[in-house]
Structure formats: C-alpha cells, structure tokens
Amino acid sequence: MSEVRIAAESRTVFGKGAARKIRRANKVPAVLYGHGIDPKHLSLPGHEVLLALRTPNVLIRLEGDGVDELALPKGVQRDPIKGFVEHVDLLLVKRGEKVTVEIPVTTVGDVHSDGLLDQQLVQVAVEAEATHIPTGVEVNVEGLTVGTAITAAQLQLPQGATLVAGPETVILQVIAKPVEAAEEAAEGEVAVAAAEGETAEASAE
C-alpha cells in the first residue's frame, strides 16, 4: 500500500469553538495516539484528508511542525448531512508491526438462477503488516446454489494477512428466491421463449 503524505500542524487550543474555527479554515482537527505516546493534537488540510479517506485503511505519512509519523485512520467523524470530515483519530504505526483492520469483501459472478445472494458481511477483520494492508478480498460466487454458505475460514486472504474474525462467521450465503420472484422469473423465461418461437415462425414464412 502506498503512503499518502499530508501536512500536519500542531494545535494547542481545544474545544468546540476551536474545532469550528479550524473547520472554517477548511482544515480537520485530528488526534494522533498509540505506542504509549501522549496524544498529539493536529490540524490537517481538509481536502487532502477527504481524498485520502476514499481508500480503505489508507496509510498516512504525517509531515511538518515537528511531526514525521505513519498513521492509520481509526475513527472518522463526518457531518451527517453534508458528509465532510469533522474529526479524525489516527493510530501511530511503525514499519513491520502488525495491525488489525477490516478489509472489504467483494463478490464476482452470479449465483444460480434459483437463488439470491445474501451477503451478511461486507468487511472482515484481518491482521497484516501496517505497511502492507490488503485492499480487500474477493469471493467468486459464480453458480453457487441455494443453501451454499461461505464462512470466514473459506476466504482466500491475500498473502501476509491472517484471519481475526471467527472462522465460522458466515460471510455470505445463497437463499431461495421468494415464491413471487421465482414465478415472475419463470413467466419471463416463458415469454422470452414464446417470442423467440414467433420470430422463428415468421422467418420460416
């Protein structure tokens, strides 16, 4: 995983008023903690933080104002309406150390036409080196039939990552379609077949 470099400024004034002032300047209040250090209160450029957080488990290199550290976002507060970042908690990490993170679980392919995919977890907890956090894990669901379930233990994790979630945790399963949906699908298939038959007859005439 590549590092995103972000300029950091130390801040010594706290409270809601000070935080609002920082945000009005298009910056984000942040706290850096971990490894037994006293928490460092920082101010970060808002736009750069917003862009960085688009990448899950992004590794941030904080630079400037006496700070030169690697960190992982561990808590992000956003405005519930506008969505902009209001505050970030950052965990100090060192190269080579292991961290526990949640990575996205994505699927490829389509399950059997008789079933519906029920994905119960969109993220799974793993342990990996702080500087080599996988971007996610992919599950091929092509042709899976009703009753099939994929557990955490069955995930093909990227090299260097180990499972933290319980191995029996169900990630996804294939369930039967509701009766109405199955009937509609069958009617659609009949209609298509009938249309194809009419087209064939017209061509023969």
Results as ranks from 00 to 15, higher is better:
Ser10Lys: 15
Pro178His: 05
Arg23Phe: 08
Leu50Val: 07
Gly46Ala: 14
Ile60Lys: 03
Ile37Val: 07
Asp89His: 07
Gln154His: 11
Gln123Ala: 06
Leu44Val: 13
Val170His: 01
Ala71Val: 02
Asp65Glu: 12
Gly136Ile: 12
Leu62Thr: 05
Ala202Phe: 12
Thr162Glu: 11
Gln119Phe: 07
Leu62Ala: 04
Ala130Asp: 04
Gln77Trp: 05
Gly66Arg: 13
Gly109Trp: 10
Val124Glu: 00
Gln154Lys: 14
Lys177Glu: 07
Gln120Asn: 01
Leu42Asn: 03
Thr162Phe: 05
Gln77Ile: 03
Asp110Glu: 15
Ile175Ser: 07
His35Gly: 02
Gly34Ser: 04
Glu69Ala: 13
Lys94Leu: 01
Gly188Pro: 03
Gly143Ile: 00
Ala71Asp: 03
Phe84Pro: 10
Ala128Gly: 02
Ala149Glu: 15
Thr151Pro: 05
Val93Ile: 06
Ala176Met: 06
Val111Tyr: 03
Thr131Ile: 00
Ala186Arg: 15
Glu138Arg: 15
Asn26Met: 09
Arg61His: 15
Leu91His: 09
Arg78Met: 07
Glu48Leu: 07
Glu187Gln: 15
Asp89Trp: 06
Gly136Val: 10
Ala195Val: 02
Gly64Cys: 02
Val111Gly: 09
Val137Ser: 10
Ala181Arg: 15
Asp110Cys: 05
Pro178Gly: 05
Pro134Ser: 03
Ala8Lys: 13
Ala125Trp: 02
Thr151Val: 11
Gly188His: 11
